[in-house]
């Protein structure tokens, strides 16, 4: 507690200290009184009970004081939270794409990254975009979390105030590999960030794989033959697979048509043994050119 990792930590941790402190006081106090009564008025020491029906003053006291106390707690909860909703106009804008089960961060210059890289002491505004189900972007060290809801444009913001690398978790249950939907935020020096941001040279990997990673294809379709929730890409090119088309089983060849159809209309032919419905159509998300790059890459995955 009380680090300075983001601009919210102090406020949130102050609310924590106040609420947890008051709670601990009541927990210890009430439990202590209860145990004391049980010992003090045990039937061996106190054989004759005395009735006390009610005591108006006492009852009013223990209604009014807790009411005031909870409102005080509410107030500190509110003040610690308010800055989170005051999203500034100016700042580094990043689109956070959440998709089963990976995070992709898209910068203003079109750069994609699977970790969130940000400069120290600058406001970062995240546009939260989900293509499938509800996810939630959670950075415990920064004390922030906001759901990534498909069809809803949620936003969050923060200022990273200490250099370092912090965990990002998905906090809303999103299916099989929910607990593997991890990433991290790297707070680096502004100069270093500028160099990183302007370095748009593509990494030395196959452009088809770049497309597959950018669209989170590989979180469901492995490259090494492992079964996840979708069939693995390894060795499928040019082979026959059994698929279910409109409830009928049939055998198809994995060729250009099949790959394209599987990307644009994924529920048309579903490989036998896998569930339809989990994959979204990529009609508007992956261009024909990119499909060809993917096909080119699949050919290399023997």
């Amino acid at each position: 507690m009380f680090s300075n990792a983001s601009n919210f930590v102090q406020g949130v941790d102050t609310s924590f200290a106040i609420i947890l402190g008051a709670s601990l006081f009541f927990l210890v106090g009430i439990t202590g009184v209860m145990v004391y009564f049980v010992v003090r008025y045990n039937k061996n020491k106190h054989p004759e009970a005395q009735d006390v029906h009610e005591n108006k003053k006492l009852e009013i006291t223990w209604t009014v004081i807790p009411t005031i106390l909870v409102l005080v707690m509410f107030y500190f909860g509110w003040t610690g939270y308010e800055p989170m909703r005051k999203i500034p106009e100016e700042g580094i804008k990043v689109k956070a794409h959440a998709q089963m089960w990976s995070w992709q961060f898209e910068y203003e210059n079109g750069k994609y990254s699977d970790t969130l890289v940000v400069p120290k002491d600058e406001a970062v505004i995240l546009d939260l975009i989900s293509r499938d189900v509800v996810h939630s972007l959670y950075i415990p060290a920064f004390r922030i979390k906001e759901d990534v809801v498909p069809g809803v444009n949620n936003k969050m913001w923060f200022i990273g105030q200490e250099l370092g690398k912090y965990n990002i978790f998905c906090a809303e249950f999103c299916g099989d590999l929910h607990s593997k939907m991890l990433s991290s935020v790297h707070v680096i020096a502004p100069e270093e960030y500028n160099v990183w941001y302007n370095d748009t040279t593509q990494p030395e990997i196959h452009p088809g794989l770049v497309v597959l990673k950018k669209n989170a294809c590989v979180s469901c379709h492995s490259l090494d033959g492992t079964r996840i929730v979708g069939p693995s890409f390894k060795g499928i090119w040019g082979h026959e697979v059994e698929v279910i088309t409109n409830g009928e089983e049939r055998t198809v060849m994995v060729d250009e048509d099949y790959v394209k159809r599987s990307i644009y209309d994924p529920n048309a032919d579903v490989v036998k043994g896998f569930n339809p419905g989990l994959m979204i159509p990529y009609q508007n998300l992956v261009t024909e050119e990119e499909v060809n790059e993917i096909i080119d890459y699949l050919k290399t995955l023997k």
Binding site: W78, G80, Y81, K145, A171
Partner: peptide
Amino acid sequence: LVIGALATDIHLHDT
């Protein structure tokens, strides 16, 4: 109460 308060719930929600 800790998760009824906004600031602390944002951190603790779904944990």
